[in-house]
């Protein structure tokens, strides 16, 4: 019965919304964590070490996130395929009256964000793309996240891709956040929710983009102490 529910069109709306909430929660938490960079290397690096030292929390969280992520992407692809099938002959003259640009590009923005995410993980989590910066340690012998971020962002392609991806994430979230209330049946006044979605998305964009921007403006600098192991 439960499976039937989750396979129905309304059930999958719920899945998209609930997994979206998890992912949004992660994005917000991740941003708050990252913003500690403005508090200096000590704050950020100890925060990172803390996380690493809590495997009981970290791994289940990662598992849930991964699950949510796979579901979010998987369900959206199944929906997209069905939706395409539901209109096998498109309009010759299509027009849009109300649907926002963000809502019409969810699949595309989502897929690009997915691609970016893989790159982002390879960059900062697995250290594949920039191994030079990945193996830095700070004075206390901790993984020097602070320097890694700043040094990475000093490379224009890296920060450029990052800001662009945050822009797409903002677009994706501006529709996703207002839509999840609708999907979960919590929608009140739609214009207010639409505004709220846009505001939250913009805050996330501003928060995340502030880091590469600060790096380029020279507000954030790699400080001494960072050395290659």
């Amino acid at each position: 019965m439960c499976l039937k529910f989750l396979k129905s069109s309304v059930g999958r709306k719920y899945l998209m919304a609930v997994t979206g909430v998890f992912l949004l929660g992660f994005v917000v938490a991740h941003m708050l964590g990252n913003l500690q960079i403005f508090l200096g290397p000590e704050a950020l690096n100890s925060y990172a070490e803390h996380l690493q030292n809590l495997p009981a929390l970290l791994w289940p969280a990662r598992a849930v996130l991964l699950g949510a992520f796979i579901l979010h992407v998987g369900v959206s692809i199944s929906l997209a395929i069905e939706n395409r099938r539901a209109r096998s002959i498109p309009y010759a003259c299509g027009a849009t009256v109300e649907a926002s640009y963000a809502s019409r590009t969810m699949v595309m923005s989502g897929l690009i964000i997915l691609a970016f995410l893989i790159y982002h993980l390879l960059n900062f989590t697995f250290g594949v793309t920039h191994p030079r910066f990945f193996h830095l340690v700070d004075a206390k012998g901790r993984h020097d996240v602070y320097s890694m971020v700043i040094l990475s962002f000093r490379e224009l392609p890296v920060s450029g891709a990052y800001v662009a991806a945050m822009g797409l994430l903002c677009l994706h979230l501006s529709h996703g956040i207002s839509g999840l209330f609708q999907s979960l049946g919590l929608a009140g006044a739609m214009p207010a929710l639409k505004r709220a979605g846009a505001v939250i998305a913009l805050v996330i964009f501003a928060g995340n983009s502030s880091i590469p921007l600060a790096v380029w403006l020279g507000w954030l600098k790699a400080v001494g102490g960072g050395s290659v192991e």
Binding site: S8, S9, N83, R87, E98, M190
Partner: peptide
């Protein structure tokens, strides 16, 4: 009603609201 709707081959709602506009 939802089950029948799904069976008929309609697409899924993605909260774009073109419906209420027309």
């Amino acid at each position: 009603m939802v089950a029948q709707m799904d069976q008929e081959g309609f697409g899924n709602c993605t909260n774009q609201f073109e419906c209420q506009a027309v």
